Computed example of a mutant assay.
Amino acid sequence: MTDDRQDLVLTHHASEAARPLLDALCEVYADAYGVEPLAEKTSAFRGRAERGLGYAGFELVTAWAGGALVGFAFGYSIPEGNTRWWQGLQPEPPAGFTVETGTRTFILTEIEIRQSWQSQGIGKRIHDELLSGRLEERATLATNPTAAKAQALYEAWGWERIGQRPGMSTDYFDAYDLFLRSLGKERPR
């Protein structure tokens, strides 16, 4: 008997190829959080995913085993001139930190693994696969300030907590801890 966990297939998808996978992504998301696929939390995820599909630089990496979707990660580039992501960041960042060119910063917006596949290193494999091909200088992500386990994992993966910003009216949490990671692709200014 083969162990499907060793035979993962990681696949990249741009927006148009990702759209037909939205229902499957919602199923994985619901499983990862132990909620019903039609729960409010999953509906909020669907809305975020649908918005994300519309951004330039959107990319999804999926993990498949035995023909089943077991995990995914996706994100997109912060659009040129858009500073909403950094709005209200404390401590206040240095001058020029929030300048966005459309190719400077990648937002890792979601990384989800089915519960039965968690703690197997699959999240790290998907994470690394997604970030390794990005052309931006840096990547950012946001977490629930009380998600100590997730934050420790991100720090072990090379992310640095840079501060906290308030949530917006449409956000799931009232505040978010922001993390940053260099992608080693500094561009001349």
Rank of each mutant, 00 (worst) to 15 (best):
T103Y: 08
G163Q: 06
R161F: 12
Q87H: 12
K124V: 07
Q120V: 13
F173A: 04
V61Y: 01
M1D: 09
L69K: 15
R104E: 03
G54Q: 15
E50V: 06
E155N: 04
G67E: 00
R165T: 06
R104I: 05
R19C: 02
A18L: 03
G54P: 05
E160S: 15
W85G: 10
E112K: 14
P93W: 05
E92T: 05
A18E: 00
S77N: 10
E40P: 06
R84E: 04
A49C: 13
F45G: 00
G121C: 04
E27D: 14
T2R: 12
I126V: 09
R181M: 08
E100W: 10
L131I: 06
G133K: 12
A56H: 09
T146S: 02
Q164E: 08
A152R: 15
F72P: 00
D4A: 07
Y29P: 06
G66F: 08
E137W: 05
P166S: 08
G81F: 02
R19E: 07
G123E: 01
G57T: 01
G81Q: 08
L130W: 01
V28F: 03
H127W: 02
E40N: 06
D177V: 13
K41I: 06
E129Y: 00
G57Q: 11
E59P: 03
R189A: 14
L130S: 05
I111M: 03
H12A: 13
A175F: 04
W157K: 01
Q87W: 10
R138E: 10
Q115P: 11
W117G: 00
D4S: 10
I111P: 00
A150E: 05
A44I: 12
G75K: 09
H127M: 07
A175G: 06
P79T: 14
A73T: 05
A73R: 08
R46L: 01
D177K: 09
E160Y: 12
A175S: 02
I162S: 11
G75T: 01
R189N: 13
L180A: 14
Y154F: 11
I78T: 12
